[in-house]
Design a protein around this nucleic acid. Structure first.
Lengths: 207, 207
DNA sequence: CTCTGTGAAGAAGTTCACAGCA
DNA sequence: TGCTGTGAACTTCTTCACAGAG
């Protein structure tokens, strides 16, 4: 394994691989070839091998990849080995749904801070988490929280984001339907359902 | 404007442009240059000009782009000119949040069918839409519904998807944390919050 | 002058095809 | 034989740089 710059696209695929590997592990599958794996994730086997090869020689020639080993390696690469706290800002319908999303555990994510500035919501409990007011954003630094989910209306999102960045947050998952401006060191991933539907609409054959 | 194959990436950016243009329109901004627009969407101006150029000469040299005209053109390209019905399968917390999401209107999307197979949910109303049982998927063809949102648990998602495809659905927005298998003609966009957080985690500087 | 539209150059990502190890 | 790991070829996407229109 030589040095190569790792493509961003490879990083985006690693969680897909991880999710599928955890599923295989649940089914007591211990070994998988790139060819078989390809059928499961719909990514070409050559792509899968190349993606893994950026990080090391994880496979065994003639045999394939050890599922548990691969899970461990990908978790290490993605820095998912220890529990990672996440803050949620905006506890509306979408935010609340995210809060009670059961899928975070297997990635070691834990939402440990929920924030809203609607006085009717502050103090309420969702699960075992109490919604705090916006001034709590400053405390994220102390708590060493580096990831945040923004689920506020668009007009509040940039303001919230500025505060999050000031509080040391380095990664933002943005559900607000707007483009966020952040320093380069802060990575933002945007999710906009209406935009995704619009993309799908383009690909519909007939009008 | 010569013939060019249109990059998929261009299609993914069109909704971003559209969203921002609608915002500008709201603020009574009537004209915008690729340079100014670039600052708003954080996409290079050369990229913006090239993206538009695939579809026609929408701008005026020395002046920029007419906001309203551009909105109209992009809506036409994305086939968003008339109301498009969307089905929702899975009316759990996430599905319900999507149902009451206010942002679909400006894209002419309307969720006109909500489906779940939990007997406690069937018959309930969310907004002015009654949740129906899974057998209703067959009626999508009659209603000419081509887009669906899958927000079921992972273990139900592939089964639901097969039924949707059989009912003529050509575009699926998948929230279930699994890879869906569909015929090539059916476009799938996946949204998995945990996976996106995992991607963000990679980019965090320190462990 | 300003700003678009666009070939050409460059960068990034994917696929091929096969050497080499089990 | 079966399957990985990987340079090289290829494809796709982005950026440059500038002609040309207003």
């Amino acid at each position: 394994m030589r040095y190569h710059k790792i493509p961003e696209e490879t990083i985006r695929r690693l969680p897909v691989y991880l999710r599928q590997l955890m599923l295989l592990c649940q089914k007591d599958c211990t070994n998988v070839s790139s060819h078989n794996f390809s059928d499961l994730v719909h990514i070409p086997d050559s792509q899968i091998r190349k993606d893994f090869s950026y990080f090391g020689d994880f496979g065994v020639r003639g045999k394939g990849y050890d599922v548990k080993k691969l899970i461990k390696e990908i978790k290490r690469i993605l820095k998912l080995e220890s529990t990672r706290q996440v803050a949620l800002v905006g506890a509306g319908r979408l935010g609340s749904a995210v809060l009670s999303y059961p899928g975070f555990g297997s990635y070691n994510f834990k939402i440990t801070c929920a924030i809203d500035n609607d006085k009717r919501k502050i103090g309420k409990k969702i699960g075992n988490l109490t919604i705090k007011n916006a001034s709590q954003i400053n405390s994220l630094k102390k708590k060493n929280i580096k990831l945040a989910i923004v689920a506020t209306p668009a007009d509040a999102a940039q303001d919230v984001t500025n505060k999050l960045v000031k509080a040391g947050v380095n990664g933002i998952l943005n559900f607000a339907p707007c483009t966020l401006t952040t320093p380069k060191k802060v990575k933002v991933i945007n999710i906009d359902i209406a935009m995704d539907l619009a993309t799908l609409s383009y690909y519909l054959r007939s009008a």
